[in-house]
């Protein structure tokens, strides 16, 4: 996994609540057996018109959002299906972090496995960031080490993250390798139960 330490990037806003993983990556793209290449299908049904041309009304197609690497959205982001194709698509498109007042549990976990940082911020902060994101030059800096997020204009906020997950992200470690360190406990557990 690619480590996540500090990231500075342009912010795109998606002011919608309950964005489900069916929207993030529609089902017709789940048939591939690779982990890569999902970015071009991200938000497909919102992003493209029936004739295949970009939908000019969709938030990410606005010129001011081009090249954004931080997505800000509303409550319950990533609800629904457990498909990890959702964070794969967001990361492949170029996002390194998603900010929202709340996330669905499975999606949140899936992000952490893919070095896509999910950040929960208070609703007022998200409202402020959604407003700022309407500009074409708005950038945020995220420090995972410090657990803070800030801009160059005085906004700053801190966020929580599980210390264990934080460590994995900072180092970019393979979790399965780490778990094998605990194999003696797994063997003991299996013995005790058999």
């Amino acid at each position: 996994m690619e480590p996540f330490v500090v990231h500075k990037g342009k912010v795109a806003g998606l002011d919608r609540a309950n964005v489900d993983t069916d929207q993030i990556i529609p089902k017709q793209f789940l048939k591939r057996i690779e982990r890569t290449g999902f970015g071009r299908f991200l938000f497909y049904d919102w992003r493209y018109l029936p004739d295949g041309t970009p939908n000019p009304h969709f938030e990410l197609n606005r010129p001011e959002n081009e090249g954004a690497t931080i997505l800000v959205a509303n409550e319950n982001f990533g609800c629904g299906s457990s498909r990890e194709h959702a964070p794969w698509a967001l990361a492949d498109y170029g996002f390194r972090a998603v900010i929202a007042p709340s996330f669905a549990d499975i999606f949140y976990n899936n992000c952490l496995k893919n070095s896509l940082l999910p950040i929960k911020l208070p609703k007022e902060d998200v409202a402020y960031l959604l407003k700022q994101a309407e500009r074409s030059d708005y950038e945020l800096t995220i420090s995972l080490e410090q657990q803070v997020i800030f801009d160059d204009e005085g906004f700053t906020s801190s966020f929580d993250i599980d210390p264990y997950r934080k460590q994995l992200l900072l180092k970019g470690w393979d979790e399965i390798d780490l778990t094998f360190v605990y194999e003696p406990y797994i063997i003991a557990y299996e013995k005790a139960r058999s």
Binding site: R35, S82, R83, E84, P87, I106, N109, N110, K113, N114, Y164, E175, I176, T179, F180, Y182, E183, I186, E190
Partner: peptide, 17 residues
């Protein structure tokens, strides 16, 4: 329900954190 990375973790270790 779990994601694909967790599927891999369970296949390999029969556990999850």
């Amino acid at each position: 329900g779990i994601g694909t990375s967790e599927v891999e973790h369970v296949l390999a270790t029969q556990t999850l954190w």
